[in-house]
């Protein structure tokens, strides 16, 4: 098979079968890219995961671009990315229509209203997990608490809750301030 259609087909499958976000996509990407086609070595795949975590954007899209470029240059990146988002666009568009059509139905609303607390709970659990990973980078223990991270978190909370600052500003501020503080503590302590 030609390389570009193969890339498209592989990433279409990744887009179609990864339900539940980035961590669900990871094993699928590995199966296609490392095991089935040898487009990346296992070491390169580990690098891809690291890069994906350090850069913005969904891991499937990051992976599609990274693999596409290495296999077939810019056209490869475009084709692989298209393949990976096409199932989303088609399926979710149908859902958007269904939602718009039935939204005002009483029964539909009753069902949806049970989803809302669960979604808030899922976001809370994801946030708490991230917070614990930031506060205790070496695993949870009293000595393991990272005081810089705690300071950044409390400062960010204050900016968001009390002064209603924009999240984008808060994220970049904590990045810049964090780098400076970590650098200083490493240099002088």
């Amino acid at each position: 098979m030609n390389l570009l259609p193969q890339l498209f087909w592989s990433f279409l499958q990744i887009g179609l079968f990864s339900i539940g976000g980035g961590y669900a996509a990871m094993p699928l990407i590995q199966a296609q890219v490392v095991d089935a086609h040898n487009w990346l070595s296992l070491q390169e795949f580990a690098d891809l995961v690291t890069i994906a975590e350090m850069t913005p954007g969904p891991i499937a899209v990051n992976g599609a671009t990274f693999v596409g470029i290495r296999v077939a240059g810019i056209p490869g990146a475009v084709i692989a990315t298209l393949g990976c988002i096409l199932p989303s666009i088609l399926i979710v568009s149908v859902l958007a229509y269904v939602y718009k059509r039935w939204r005002n139905l009483r029964t539909f609303q009753d069902v949806l209203s049970a989803l809302r607390p669960v979604i808030v709970a899922l976001i809370a659990a994801a946030g708490l997990r991230l917070l614990l990973a930031a506060l205790f980078p070496e695993g949870i223990s009293l000595q393991g608490l990272d005081p810089v991270a705690l300071l950044l978190f409390l400062g960010a909370m204050l900016l968001l809750r009390k002064w209603k600052k924009s999240p984008v500003l808060v994220i970049f501020l904590s990045g810049g301030l964090g780098a400076a503080l970590y650098y200083l503590t490493e240099a002088f302590l």
Binding site: M54, I123, A124, A126, G127, L128, L130, L131, A133, A134, L135, P137, V148, A149, L150, L152, F153, A156, M157, L160, R161, P167, V170, I171, F172, L173, S174, G175, G176, L177, G178, A179, L181, Y182, Y183
Partner: peptide, 16 residues
């Protein structure tokens, strides 16, 4: 280092 600092900020955004 920047990414390490951002993690605390992202956690705050989500919990807010």
């Amino acid at each position: 280092l920047i990414l390490k600092g951002m993690r605390a900020g992202v956690a705050a955004v989500i919990l807010d």
